[in-house]
């Protein structure tokens, strides 16, 4: 990157390090930090939306909807994450391709399962075989977001379901006796009050989600842990201008610092949110806040 990087072997330590840390390969690990942050930024709200829908359908009075919500929570929470990430993504990808196949190639006579191979017509491939690599990567990333959202949505649904039941029942009854409809009670009384009960559980989920991001590599997205392992591995002089021994420990140490910092920042923010939500609530903490004021 720098002009003096032409012959790294002749450089002194500091300059060598500056060159080493700015190779194209290192740029990839810096970009992957943003990939992880972007994943979290998209997944968290999506998972929360899934959770909200799951929880509200689980407590619906319409039986099939309630069964659906409860089944979603129970099944997804029960399946081990790793099995879900390995199996579900390939299945999801194949489902999309199969739907496209049925729509776009109605004349196709061969079976889509040929021995071990899953074969759909070329224009049904997803992404198309001739699309550039970044399209493939974005598609993989979107699949990852969807999978994370479904998994963490189920956990969030359970948390929100519990939080909805924690709102004092007499509040809901009072609202009904004032003549509010069920919908009004839900949106005006239940939802605003449930967050304070849900937040401890949701903040737990957020922390777990941060640490679950290395599962991205199972989904074919090259995340920071993949690059740390790749960059840290011993390199021989024949294949690189920057030979070094096994430096994985240093790379993983950097990851440790990154994750710890990130967790700390999350804690501070979540504490603030908790204080806001507690304000004016009929809970112990809310009562304490009122007395202190």
């Amino acid at each position: 990157m720098f002009s003096f990087c032409v012959d790294p072997a002749s450089l002194d330590d500091l300059a060598w390090m500056a060159c080493y840390l700015t190779t194209g390969k290192h740029m990839a690990i810096y970009t992957s930090v943003f990939t992880v942050l972007l994943l979290l930024a998209i997944t968290a709200p999506t998972a929360l939306a899934f959770g909200f829908l799951g929880a509200s359908s689980a407590r619906s009075h319409f039986a099939p909807l309630s069964w659906f919500g409860k089944a979603y929570i129970a099944v997804v929470r029960g399946v081990p994450d790793i099995a879900f990430f390995l199996f579900f993504v390939i299945a999801l990808d194949q489902l999309f391709e199969w739907i496209r196949h049925e729509v776009k190639c109605p004349d196709w006579t061969d079976s889509i399962w040929q021995g071990n191979d899953f074969v759909v017509c070329d224009i049904a491939k997803l992404p198309l075989g001739n699309s550039p690599q970044w399209v493939h990567e974005t598609y993989g990333f979107m699949l990852a977001v969807l999978t994370f959202a479904i998994v963490f949505g189920a956990f969030a649904a359970n948390v929100l379901y519990g939080a909805m039941r924690a709102v004092p029942h007499n509040q809901l009854e009072t609202a009904e006796s004032y003549g509010m409809t069920r919908r009004q009670v839900f949106w005006r009384i239940l939802v605003p009050q449930m967050w304070v009960f849900a937040l401890p559980g949701l903040s737990n989920l957020w922390m777990v989600l941060i640490k679950a991001t290395p599962l991205l590599f199972l989904l074919g997205v090259e995340d920071i842990v993949y690059w740390a392992r790749e960059l840290g591995g011993a390199k021989t002089a024949r294949f690189t201008d920057y030979p070094h021994g096994d430096w994985r420990m240093w790379y993983f140490l950097a990851l440790l610092v990154f994750y710890l910092l990130f967790t700390r920042i999350s804690e501070i923010v979540l504490d603030k949110v908790m204080r806001k939500l507690t304000h004016g609530q009929a809970t112990l903490a809310g009562d304490a806040q009122r007395k202190a004021a």
Binding site: F96, I99, R100, V103, D122, I123, K125, L126, P127, L128, G129, N130, S131
Partner: peptide, 9 residues
């Protein structure tokens, strides 16, 4: 996803 692309490959 279905409507995403119609280009012929």
């Amino acid at each position: 996803v279905i409507t995403a692309s119609v280009a012929f490959a």
